[in-house]
């Protein structure tokens, strides 16, 4: 084997791609030719070092922008993407949200032995992961950051009005979220879900638990808008017990209005 022929095997040699026959021929030549041996060693070391270079990791913004764009895409803003992506508004979303979705999707993917070049299996995901926005809303509502939960509420507002999972998450937020601002926004987001009986019961339950006057007022308004007449006992209780004069005033108005 000539030096020239030997060097043509180097690429396979470094990447462990040589077949047995070529491997033997190569080693024979390297044993005999010092020039080729030294070169194989030097370049081989460099090849190993290339593999040891730490991979640059993308920032959290990449993921959030991608999922933002995806959600926007879903809502029909397709023409935005005929432009290069860096011109679209770079909305932020903490990476955890997307990571949550990723876990979910990865779970689904793993369950089906998903491989990227098996497109029929990919298409099975259609049934498994039906609604991107639902996922985004649901995972956003679980976030540590109040700003992100507010964002989840915004997404929930755009969910299908019959999406019971999103409704459940919203009602849970109204009842349990630690932040007043998030609870307040969640109450406003309940309007599109008005027709569901779960909404009505949820509002009544939330009203008895609520201690922030702003949220109490928002809930009373919602009761009136949805004409929930069975709210009378809860309203009377507020009329008597609410610490804030504004809340008592609003409860009185609601009682008149619901008669």
């Amino acid at each position: 084997m000539t030096c020239e022929e030997t060097k043509q095997l180097f690429a396979d040699y470094w990447s462990d791609g040589l077949n047995g026959e070529d491997e033997i021929k190569l080693q024979e030549h390297l044993g005999a030719c010092e020039g080729c041996r030294k070169e194989a060693e030097r370049l081989g070391a460099l090849w190993r070092d290339l593999g040891a270079l730490p991979a640059e990791q993308p920032g959290p913004g990449l993921r959030s922008r991608f999922y933002d764009s995806l959600a926007a895409f879903r809502s029909g803003a397709d023409d935005r993407f005929s432009q290069p992506s860096h011109r679209s508004p770079a909305k932020q979303m903490v990476w955890q949200i997307a990571a949550g979705i990723a876990l979910l999707l990865a779970g689904v993917g793993a369950g089906y032995g998903l491989r990227p070049n098996q497109s029929p299996e990919l298409s099975q995901l259609r049934e498994e992961v039906a609604n991107m926005r639902q996922l985004v809303a649901l995972s956003l509502l679980q976030q540590q950051s109040a700003s992100e939960r507010l964002r989840g509420v915004s997404y929930a507002l755009r969910a299908e009005p019959n999406d019971s999972e999103v409704l459940g998450a919203l009602l849970d937020t109204v009842k349990r979220d630690s932040n007043v601002n998030v609870r307040l926004a969640a109450v406003d987001a309940l309007h599109p879900f008005a027709s569901s009986p779960a909404t009505r019961n949820g509002i009544l339950q939330a009203l008895t638990k609520q201690d922030a006057p702003l949220v109490q007022v928002a809930l009373i308004d919602l009761l009136v808008d949805l004409k929930i007449k069975q709210a009378e006992p809860e309203l009377r209780q507020l009329l008597q017990n609410a610490g804030d004069a504004g809340v008592r005033q609003r409860a009185e108005w609601a009682l008149e209005n619901l008669q």
Binding site: Q92, L184, L214
Partner: peptide, 11 residues
């Protein structure tokens, strides 16, 4: 950009 914010008070 893109962060939701909220500023609220009762009184």
């Amino acid at each position: 950009p893109g962060k939701n914010m909220s500023f609220t008070t009762m009184n």
